[in-house]
Amino acid sequence: MAVRVSLLATTRDNHVLMVRDPHVEGGWQLPTSIVPPGDCPVRTAWHLSVSRTGYYQEAAYALAVSLEHGPSGLPIALDYILDGGQSDTPPCDAVSLTDGAGWRPMRELLESPPVVQNALLALAHGERVPVLVNGDRPAADWPEPDAEDQSA
């Protein structure tokens, strides 16, 4: 089953950090990535944030989680929308963001999937839950699976 993580970083003046995607109508979407096997959503979000946007803020809390089912009725994907933080105004100028990243008007998310809509509602109500791995809150520098095996 695929585990996907998306970041929802916003500003109080209604902008959202998005990345350009030629495969998406309108060309912009939330930064999204597949969580590699053995990794956790928090660390994947850190890598995603740094590599795709150039903007980093800890994303250890989920705003929405959704289980996607295939035609057979079996789960095929788990989607996390993580809270990428909120600033008063866009904290990065165009020079500090990577190519293809930008602060876009939040209205561009009006026709987004239900999991994103629910994440926006959770953000507006100040509701979020910690992302847990093995019952604990992982840090962005959560050790690689190989590093744990070597220390044993």
Rank of each mutant, 00 (worst) to 15 (best):
E58C: 03
I34V: 15
N134H: 12
P91N: 09
P75A: 11
S33N: 10
L82H: 02
D88Y: 13
A119Y: 06
V133E: 12
C92V: 02
A147G: 00
P130R: 01
G84H: 05
L8V: 10
R52G: 00
P71D: 15
P71T: 12
P90R: 01
A60F: 00
E111D: 09
E127I: 06
S87R: 03
D149L: 15
V115R: 00
D146K: 11
G102F: 04
G26E: 04
T11E: 01
D39R: 15
A59W: 04
V50G: 05
R20S: 03
L82K: 02
D99Q: 10
G126Q: 00
A59Y: 05
L67N: 12
S33W: 08
L78S: 13
Q57F: 04
S151V: 01
E58W: 01
N118Y: 08
S6L: 14
S151Y: 04
A59H: 09
G102R: 03
D136W: 07
Q29A: 14
Y80E: 07
S51L: 14
A124Q: 04
V24H: 11
Q117L: 15
V42E: 06
V42Y: 04
S112G: 14
V133T: 13
T32H: 02
P113S: 08
P114H: 06
L132G: 05
N118H: 12
V50F: 11
C92Y: 02
H69K: 14
S51V: 07
D39H: 10
Q150V: 00
L63N: 01
E111M: 10
L123I: 03
R107G: 02
H125W: 02
M106I: 15
T89E: 13
S96A: 11
S6Y: 07
Y61W: 12
A2V: 09
V95T: 01
D79N: 15
E58M: 06
G54F: 08
M1F: 10
P114I: 13
D93Q: 08
T10Y: 01
V19K: 08
S96M: 08
T89S: 09
L123G: 00
P91F: 05
V16K: 01
Y80K: 08
C92W: 01
R137S: 00
L132S: 03
H47V: 10
E108A: 08
T32S: 06
A60S: 15
D149P: 00
G73S: 14
P36N: 07
V16I: 05
C92A: 13
S87E: 15
L120R: 11
N118E: 10
A9M: 12
P31Y: 07
Q29Y: 03
H23C: 08
L74G: 12
A101M: 09
G38T: 04
Q117E: 14
H47L: 14
I34N: 06
W142Q: 07
P71C: 04
P31Q: 09
L7D: 00
E68D: 15
G135A: 00
G38Y: 05
Y56P: 04
D136A: 02
V95R: 01
P75T: 14
R20Q: 07
E111K: 11
P145V: 12
